[in-house]
């Protein structure tokens, strides 16, 4: 039950955060618009705010608005904290893109729409995959926000925490935790592999990275 909830939340969160990430990264790296820095700073804010504050304030807002707590509210909270990470990953993918590639495509007679799908998208694809995987991992492991915003259906970490009250269940919980840990680490490794492959594709030396 909790596993299914967690997976559903993680997949939905990954897709939407990455989608928002693509839009924001594209806009912030390519176009100049008024107050670009402050808008981007505001979007990135959840990355540095303590999660417990985000969790409590979201709970207050959602209840004030009269929403029922459900899987949907957890997804909203998770999108809020995952999107900054997605933007950070995708910005570097978009920034590494040589602008004249786009111009060349248009110059060769292609439309803007097709240029995005035939030139930009394939080149930032590894970044998108990395972003999906990281958002998925963050959402899967996240506890505090899920704890505050969960209604009757808990996520896996919330379920584990709940079961900790029963000492006789400790061994199976330990096993579950180990599984979660292994899954997270392998997803992160996979994400970094895609990020590196993306850099290689655009012909840029790998510098830094988080692994």
């Amino acid at each position: 039950m909790a596993v299914r909830n967690s997976l559903m939340i993680a997949v939905t969160t990954a897709i939407f955060s990455t989608l928002f990430g693509v839009l924001a990264a594209r806009a912030s790296t390519r176009f100049a618009f008024p107050a670009r820095r402050s808008i981007m700073g505001f979007i990135m804010l959840p990355m540095v705010l303590p999660e417990i504050i985000i969790g409590v304030s979201l709970l207050v807002v959602i209840i004030q608005l009269g929403f029922e707590l459900s899987l949907f509210t957890i997804i909203l909270g998770h999108i809020l904290i995952c999107t900054p990470f997605c933007i950070a990953i995708l910005s570097s993918a978009f920034m590494n893109l040589d602008r004249s590639l786009e111009e060349a495509s248009i110059d060769l007679g292609q439309t803007r729409w097709n240029t995005f799908w035939m030139v930009i998208f394939p080149l930032v694809m590894p970044g998108i995959v990395a972003s999906l995987l990281i958002a998925f991992t963050i959402s899967l492991d996240e506890f505090i926000i899920a704890f505050f915003l969960a209604g009757t259906e808990p996520t896996l970490p919330v379920y584990i925490w709940g079961q900790l009250r029963f000492p006789q269940k400790l061994p199976s919980l330990m096993a579950l935790g180990t599984l979660l840990l292994v899954l997270s680490i392998s997803l992160l490794l996979l994400a970094d592999y895609f990020r590196r492959r993306g850099l290689k594709k655009t012909g840029i030396e790998n510098s830094g990275g988080f692994l």
């Binding site: 004249s100 110059d107 060769l108």
Partner: peptide
């Protein structure tokens, strides 16, 4: 630009890195 009877060779060449030589020329 995509409707003009001009084509451009860019300073950075702007070769599409994910395509082969023939795919670039056929673009």
């Amino acid at each position: 630009a995509n409707k003009r009877p001009t084509n451009m060779v860019f300073q950075s060449y702007a070769i599409f890195p994910h395509m082969s030589v023939a795919e670039n020329v056929a673009y």
